[in-house]
């Protein structure tokens, strides 16, 4: 039994060590990636899931990364008549047990004024920022397709 718990722990640690994943004591970031775009693009979109395993609410406010002049939380809303529009999210509150999913066609992290667009296969360090919580940083792999 102890062996099993030990190996389960090892597996969990190994998974979190992979690119696109990170955890604090109470927050778990998984499936993080950036969509590869042409080098001439000034913007990139990032995706991830964030789970609050803690016992208090946290508010995701935004992100920071050295490659971009700014980062914002956006949502792509599709209206009833089929129009898509981007909406700026000032913050997302995660109650204990909540999970936020940032995925193509929906919520996404928008990196603006990207000085040099990274290529598919590279990794970019991005730190999610919170109200009353330490930043949560992870290497976001750049991919042409969703994982």
């Amino acid at each position: 039994m102890m062996y099993k718990a030990f190996f389960n722990g090892l597996t969990g640690a190994a998974l979190l060590a992979l690119a696109g994943a990170a955890s604090a004591d109470d927050l778990v970031l998984e499936n993080a990636w950036l969509r590869a775009v042409p080098p001439v693009s000034p913007t990139m979109a990032g995706y991830f899931t964030l789970r609050n395993d803690g016992d208090r609410a946290v508010e995701l406010k935004g992100a920071r990364t050295d490659i971009a002049g700014g980062a914002m939380l956006h949502d792509t809303e599709t209206t009833e008549d089929g129009q898509a529009r981007m909406v700026h999210l000032s913050g997302i509150t995660l109650e204990p047990g909540d999970q936020a999913t940032f995925a193509p066609g929906g919520k996404h992290l928008m990196l603006m004024k990207v000085a040099s667009i990274p290529e598919a296969g590279e990794e970019v360090k991005i730190c999610l920022t919170f109200t009353d919580h330490d930043d949560l940083c992870s290497d976001f792999p750049v991919r042409r397709e969703a994982p």
Binding site: R35, P38, T43, M86, P104, G105, H108, R144
Partner: peptide, 13 residues
Amino acid sequence: YTHCPDICPATLA
């Protein structure tokens, strides 16, 4: 449009 970071590059892909 090319400044669109989410839907446009995904759809073109």
